[in-house]
């Protein structure tokens, strides 16, 4: 008995040691990102890992009126997408999960197949298409696709979740005279809140981090999102690029909402992932 217990303790200790080592490695970039934001120019130049003095001097340089404006843009686009993607993917998912109509399986398999198409094949000609419609240099390319289905992966997740709702519930409502939309709104959606929360979270974060779409279709500074703004300031800048503490200060502020959301909605995230995992 004693040996089993001690064996288990040793196993546990090994597990913690391994996990801790990995944790240090994984934390290193993010911690260094935050530490560098609080360094002086001298610390940056000499390559210090820890600030010799903590200073917030870099923040006012990084977070100017332009940064605020881009932050605002990102938030607006993010919220619109969050609503649009959730709404449209749940509607489509409801159609695929709970309604029976001819051609359903065919349409669904086409939707899933789009997951495999390389996006670059679409993005370049899309530029000319958006152009013809006068959409370039507006937020429409960042918003409208979200309302058109909201992405195959979200439809798939929602559909899987909805399949778990017993048909009998919907049948009962139908007998009571509810139409399809009413069933979706009053019965199915309230039961889908966990997965809807996941889709909302992911679409907001996706939008927050999105870089490719604005890079290709948005050129006007006042329409940039934060990603694009930072890219043109700190990566692709023909002029002079400010030192690392300013860059990291800008990055830290951008990262903050992601980390907060993740910390507090971890459960929603893991639950959402399990829907796809378990039934996928």
């Amino acid at each position: 008995m004693q040996t089993i217990k001690s064996k288990r303790a040793v196993g546990l200790a090994i597990r913690y040691v391994v996990l801790l080592i990995f944790a240090v490695i994984f934390l290193f970039p993010v911690v260094e990102l935050i530490l560098k934001a609080f360094m002086t120019d001298e610390d940056i130049a000499s390559g210090a890992l820890f600030p010799s003095v903590f200073t917030v001097a870099a923040f006012p340089k990084a977070i100017d009126s332009g940064y605020f404006w881009w932050l605002k843009n990102t938030l607006i686009i993010g919220v619109i997408n969050m609503v649009g993607i959730t709404l449209s993917s749940s509607l489509c998912a409801y159609g695929f999960a709970k309604l029976k109509f001819k051609g359903r399986e065919l349409v669904f398999s086409i939707v899933i197949a789009t997951l495999m198409l390389p996006s670059i094949c679409m993005q370049i000609p899309l530029y000319k298409l958006y152009f013809g419609m006068g959409w370039t240099n507006t937020w429409l390319p960042l918003i409208i696709p979200g309302f058109c289905g909201g992405g195959a992966i979200n439809i798939f997740l929602m559909r899987q979740y909805m399949k778990g709702i017993p048909d009998s519930v919907c049948e009962a409502a139908k007998v009571d005279g509810a139409n399809k939309f009413l069933i979706y709104l009053v019965i199915v959606m309230p039961m889908c809140l966990p997965i809807a929360g996941y889709v909302m979270l992911m679409s907001f974060l996706g939008c927050w981090n999105d870089f490719m779409t604005p890079l290709l279709y948005i050129n006007e500074q006042s329409l940039y999102n934060l990603s694009l703004g930072l890219y043109y300031r700190y990566v692709n800048n023909a002029g002079s690029i400010p030192p690392a503490n300013v860059q990291m200060a800008a990055a830290t502020v951008m990262l903050l909402p992601c980390i907060i959301l993740f910390f507090f909605f971890q459960k929603v995230l893991i639950n959402g992932v399990s829907v796809g995992a378990v039934k996928g």
């Binding site: 994984f26 934390l27 970039p29 993010v30 694009l228 992601c258 980390i259």
Partner: peptide, 14 residues
């Protein structure tokens, strides 16, 4: 999971 949360641009800069 933390490094996954880094936006592409932030991760490039970093």
């Amino acid at each position: 999971y933390l490094p996954v949360m880094l936006p592409a641009v932030v991760s490039g800069i970093l």
